[in-house]
Design a binder for these strands. Structure first.
Lengths: 218, 218
DNA sequence: AATATTTTTTAGGGTGCTCTAAAAAATACT
DNA sequence: AGTATTTTTTAGAGCACCCTAAAAAATATT
């Protein structure tokens, strides 16, 4: 049984390590959790006793298989709740993150499986992020960030790599939602902004923003 | 902003005082919260500073209007979630209490209003208990416990005054669910058990159980 | 390579909620 | 009324999670 705080730390480790690929440093985790480094050191020791992460003094942490599965359970809940909020309750996709952060900690395997069924076993949440199944399996297509694509490329927005409400509102306003087709027209050399075509409308997207838009390309 | 613990204490005070009618003693609250009396004393001091209850040393606590409204918000959330679990997710009415105890603490007025709307603004939860509206108003009909009724009386089960899963399962098994019509046939003098008719079936209900079945009678 | 800087850890402390043991107040008993 | 019992409160302490300040280790600079 993990405390709410432990769950949040574990999730942060998972995300910061890109799903267990990289090691995560103490200060990164402190930044993400909005805590001081000293507090992080305490917590990672706790999680490492529980074998959810591997902790080596001065070298940060790696998530274990056990920890990864536990983190994926939480992410599964988060993304199912987000889907529920948008699909059933009529929330906008840019308004659900905060509430889902609370709902993801509800403890009841039955609830989450029933919710999954009620939603028709969705494989992606409203932001396009894949929803892990009961076993923690992710159905993820390869994704490329918009700032990596050459002019001429076409693809579909499949996820937005941010929870910043302002960014999400902005993307919503310009029509850059998951599921939308997008074509890269041109890249300006002076600021690396990119000109794209979304639903027959031309628009410019800054380098900063384009890094957060993930596409699937054929 | 109340902590999870404060919310639970406040709710207990509301329930134990029958909605603010009676005073609640420290030991009652300790029993209800499964804590020691000393811990209760600490907490009631906190809640009384926040003006949610009136606390007088050695004489227990009374809930204030402010406290009552706050408690009703939590109860509203609890009952709306229970309704959701039964109506939408297909839970049985005897399986929802525990999960609703968690869900009731989710902080998001928008969520709860949307949920209310999604459920069609229900006025009673699956146990027949009234759901407070946004202003804390309860739409409650006068209710009588089954053990108070004379043979010959007819009524409808409108709520079951217990969260004991075993009792709820038992009532579910014998068909004594909220909404069911019921007629009192006879009362046995030796053990005060009562013979009733539910959906054309005769059955005996013990004194203990009959105290927890609340009816509305014409 | 020695020194300066940055990162991380340790040490010690604070708050929220819980406990036990002892003291104080209220209540019950003779 | 005076004593015994029950209830409640106070005092002091523990655990989870957070902090600051100082020490230790790693890294960067000259």
């Amino acid at each position: 049984m993990l405390s709410l705080t432990e769950e949040n730390y574990l999730k942060a480790v998972y995300h910061l390590s890109d799903g267990g690929t990289r090691s995560v440093l103490t200060n990164e985790l402190a930044e993400a959790m909005q805590n001081k480094a000293a507090s992080v050191t305490d917590m990672v020791k706790k999680l490492s006793v529980k074998e959810l992460i591997l902790y080596e003094r001065y070298y940060g942490v790696k998530i274990t298989l056990k920890g990864k599965l536990r983190a994926l359970e939480i992410i599964r809940k988060h993304r199912l709740w987000e889907t529920f909020l948008v699909e059933k309750l009529g929330f906008n996709w840019d308004e659900v993150h905060e509430v889902a952060e609370q709902l993801e900690h509800i403890q009841s395997p039955r609830l989450i499986d029933k919710l999954d069924e009620y939603l028709g076993f969705p494989t992606a949440d409203p932001h396009g992020d894949p929803i892990p199944d009961q076993n923690g399996k992710l159905k993820s297509l390869p994704q490329v960030a918009l700032d990596q694509l050459k002019p001429g490329s076409k693809g579909m927005i499949c996820s937005v790599n941010s929870n910043d409400p302002d960014l999400l509102k902005y993307l919503d306003k310009i029509g850059a939602r998951p599921g939308k087709k997008i074509e890269v027209l041109n890249r300006e050399s002076f600021d690396e902004s990119v000109e794209v075509l979304i639903e027959k409308k031309k628009l410019f997207i800054s380098k900063e923003v384009s890094k957060n838009i993930l596409l699937s390309v054929k």
